[in-house]
Amino acid sequence: MISQDELTQLAALARLALDESERATLAHDLDLILDYVDQLKQADFSQKVRPFPPKVLRLNLKESENVLREDGEPHPPVASRQFKVKAVFNN
């Protein structure tokens, strides 16, 4: 059960203003949803051998890996990645 205090805390974290009329239904809805997702506790997924995905036509997927470039010079500015904005200062 989500308390009103917890709701206030969450709203602060999420930077959301909640109006009073909303608070009751929101707490109720969140409770309903959390009750539903609680069933994840029953999932039995003890460590098994992880099978490789089947080899198909064009992908040779193994594990996902981070795509990073080497530290070095930053990308040079490119015209196609820039756009004009309205002038905000008049001096």
């Binding site: 989500i2 917890e6 709701l7 969450l10 709203a11 974290l13 999420a14 959301l16 929101l26 809805d29 969140l30 949803i33 959390l34």
Partner: peptide, 8 residues
């Protein structure tokens, strides 16, 4: 609702 749920 979903932002609150995600935050939770």
């Amino acid at each position: 609702r979903r932002v609150m749920l995600g935050t939770y």
